[in-house]
């Protein structure tokens, strides 16, 4: 049964302890609807792991395993190997980690699991900081965003570096399917999860998920902000299939990045000069994507 095209059944149950309006919890709900019950989830330490499994309760209605912070991809490798030895070719294996777990501490394990050609889908849910430990800067933190370890200081105004281009690094491994997705576009997220799971090899999704306390936003604005991120090209929705990048949703008319920044407390320290710099950063990243659109830019090995 489906409601407006989505599976009616919930595999990530109510009663989890995520904050009101949590973008990541919404993403998980839909990732699981798309993946279905024949799925094993290996999750990295993070908000979602903590809020969903307070012993003796679990929000999960699929088999789920957590071990540590940096090893979801390695745990998933063990799960897949065991399934192979059991002759189980049907079960989906999905590893999920936040941006800290995926861009930073679990980067090696992710790269290793991909290099080994592991049949699994790795999903990096990105809320652009270490939220579970209290909003610290990660390699995925947006430029000039204020976090507790990249504060809006008098001398240094927030994070000074660009986002690590993890999807392209993954694509460079030779992965057949890499995509960005967002809670702004749930049918697109669903389609990408299902497409990725059909591939007989490693696949990767980079999923944009707003964080209420981390971004200092109102809990009702999760989707509005996510939509704005797509409309301003801050978080473009694309897929790289067989080494070719294609946009899956392109804004009809590009909105100024300021309209995105102004909604969030983490950017409230920005001067007009910094907003201009960020506009330049976003434009340059988007121009790069448009430049490679439709061309075979990555070799495919798996």
């Amino acid at each position: 049964m489906a409601i407006i095209g989505f599976e009616e059944k919930e595999f990530f149950a109510s009663g989890h302890r995520a904050c009101a309006g949590c973008g990541e919890a919404l993403a998980l709900r839909h990732i699981m609807k798309a993946a279905g019950e024949k799925t094993i989830v290996a999750m990295a330490t993070g908000c979602m792991e903590v809020v969903s499994t307070p012993y003796p309760e679990t929000a999960w209605k699929v088999p789920w395993v957590h071990c540590a912070f940096e090893n979801a991809a390695a745990v998933a490798s063990g799960v897949r190997a065991a399934l192979n030895m059991k002759g189980d070719k049907e079960t989906n294996v999905i590893a999920i980690g936040g941006d800290g777990a995926s861009f930073d501490i679990g980067f090696g394990a992710l790269s290793g699991a991909i290099e080994r050609g592991t049949k699994f889908l790795y999903i990096a849910t990105d809320n652009e900081a270490y939220m579970n430990t209290g909003i610290q800067r990660s390699g995925a933190t947006f430029p000039y965003a204020a976090t507790t370890t990249s504060p809006a200081g008098k001398i240094i105004p927030g994070k000074q570096q660009p986002k690590k281009p993890l999807p392209f690094i993954v694509a460079s491994h030779g992965v057949k399917y890499v995509a960005s997705a967002s809670v702004a576009n749930l049918p697109d997220l669903k389609a990408k999860v299902q497409k990725a799971l059909k591939v007989n090899g490693p696949t990767f999704l980079h999923v944009y998920v707003p964080c209420i306390p981390g971004w200092k936003i109102d809990s009702s604005t999760t989707i509005e902000i996510a939509r704005k991120a797509v409309e301003t090209n801050v978080f473009p929705l694309y897929e790289i299939e067989d080494g070719v990048l294609k946009f899956t949703q392109k804004p009809a008319e590009k909105k100024q990045v300021e309209s995105y920044l102004i909604m969030q407390g983490r950017f409230k320290h920005l001067t007009p000069e910094l907003v201009k710099k960020i506009q330049g950063y976003v434009d340059a990243r988007f121009a790069f994507l448009e430049g490679i659109e439709g061309k075979k830019c990555f070799d495919v090995l798996y």
């Binding site: 490798s77 063990g78 799960v79 190997a81 059991k86 394990a109």
Partner: peptide, 15 residues
Amino acid sequence: HSAASALYGAYATGV
């Protein structure tokens, strides 16, 4: 680290 983690994953899967 991943060896121990994959071993954990294998045992979680019952082998």
